[in-house]
Design a protein around this nucleic acid. Structure first.
Lengths: 257, 257
DNA sequence: TCGAATTTGTGCGTATGTATC
DNA sequence: GGATACATACGCACAAATTCG
């Protein structure tokens, strides 16, 4: 116990051995009792080490069956290209289809709701002002890959045909197109990215383990008048998607490094 | 126990009460024993719930003292702007200084090493080909905020004055400038972003808790000939930095949403 | 179909070490 | 030194899910 706690040492050992392909993807690990005997520690310590690796998405526990090396599903690449004339835009989502099969989504606008404080702040409106909220489940080849919830200020689209993202003639069209329809040009988006874990509900929707690592993105679209036209909370599980940004490098600036 | 395990229910309860500011930032929570009595569960369950929140960066445990609501240090904003003539570039790092004080860094090039498989793949060179590896510790107002390790193919800078990032006349200058010096124009970067946790060593360097959530970015710079000129592993702890991308929206594309 | 064995998931009590006050 | 509180570790019990005879 000199330097590192036992459970961390064992977690590291298992992590290394999995990286070295001692166990194949999808293979079952020895049982807790067996590992405890192998390592000469108690049952609970093995459990604790495994919990760490499960949270990291490396292992997967199946009740009644065993602990397995998590399968690396072929992940959907979500690319934001800032380089050329790519359009990166889907409802609460970026450019899909860069890699992989059929990307689709299901949405349910759950109507007009007062903006929570955080959302109001991002949209530059007052807390409690009305918004159209829409929840999306994004699918690739029919399987869920990431989630998003979007808010649009009611004031902007109120009375137009594009008020509901999933209704009207442009049902299912992206924010950019829908806003263009009512004379608003969307110029850019700002994305705030944070690491996190999926909660039980999200895990259920995505068909993955609770606590699996994910990236939470707060994305806000801005119109040519500088106003925010939509903001979204996007949950991107690391096991299902990889996030790639392509950014240009501007020469001759004050690169102070 | 109907739906959710007790420890998750309690974790959720505490998370909510912290969000509601029942305890201020930096405030000490009641002791485990007290909370166990309050919730009518065992000591261990409280511990388990608290461990979850500590992993989420919401709580902070101090041995011998107590459990505290984690202080939200004013975070450094790391912005990648793809919009105008901003330069986003520092060694293994992006535009700093958008918000906050003095941004500096310390680096130690630990010499010429054979490229590991992953790095070789990102640089488009063969495994084992030599690289100049440099580790950076990025500081804001003297305090560490994020870490990075960069690899540059030895072949590119070999024999030039800019071979070592922290040596020669352009010591401490960014990749873009150093490459410009030897006639290579860096045109763009690709960043792959993944959620993760900091390990013990990183936590130590950053002065934060082990297991704290972070974003791991694999960034690769490309020259005008399409060759990769540098790649870096960047560790951005969520508690110290926020990551923001500004991306343009291209009108009239196949926005299929 | 049933049931027993196995394995994980959850919960509890306790002991020891160590840091803080 | 003593009291308190967290960190780690062990042992046990039971539930739930799975597997297999």
């Amino acid at each position: 116990m000199s330097e590192q706690p036992t459970y961390l040492r064992i977690a590291g050992d298992l992590r290394q051995r999995i990286a070295d392909h001692e166990w194949a993807e999808g293979a079952q690990l020895p049982s807790r009792a067996q590992l405890a005997k192998d390592f000469g520690v108690s049952d609970a310590i093995i459990r604790r080490a495994q919990e760490l690796l499960i949270a990291e998405g490396i292992l997967e526990g199946r009740a009644g069956s065993g602990t397995y090396v998590a399968e690396q599903r072929k992940r959907l690449r979500m690319t934001r290209s800032c380089l050329s004339g790519r359009l990166d835009e889907a409802p609460g989502g970026p450019d899909l289809g860069a890699l992989g099969g059929m990307e689709t989504w299901e949405s349910r606008s759950d109507g007009i709701v007062p903006a929570p404080k955080q959302v109001a702040c991002r949209l530059g409106i007052a807390e409690g002002d009305y918004c159209v909220r829409t929840a999306y489940e994004h699918l690739s080849d029919g399987k869920p890959v990431y989630l998003s919830t979007s808010w649009e200020p009611y004031e902007i689209t109120s009375g137009t045909l594009v008020m509901m993202p999933d209704g009207g003639p442009l049902a299912g069209a992206g924010v950019v197109r829908r806003m263009a329809e009512i004379g608003i040009t969307v110029t850019h988006a700002v994305e705030r990215s944070e690491p996190g874990q999926v909660n039980a509900e999200e895990a259920n929707l995505l068909g993955i383990q609770r606590g699996a690592p994910c990236t939470r993105i707060e994305r806000t679209f801005y119109g040519d008048d500088g106003r925010a036209v939509e903001t979204a909370d996007i949950v991107v599980p690391a096991t299902l998607c990889e996030i790639v940004y392509e950014v240009p490098v501007w020469q001759g600036s004050d690169s102070s490094d």
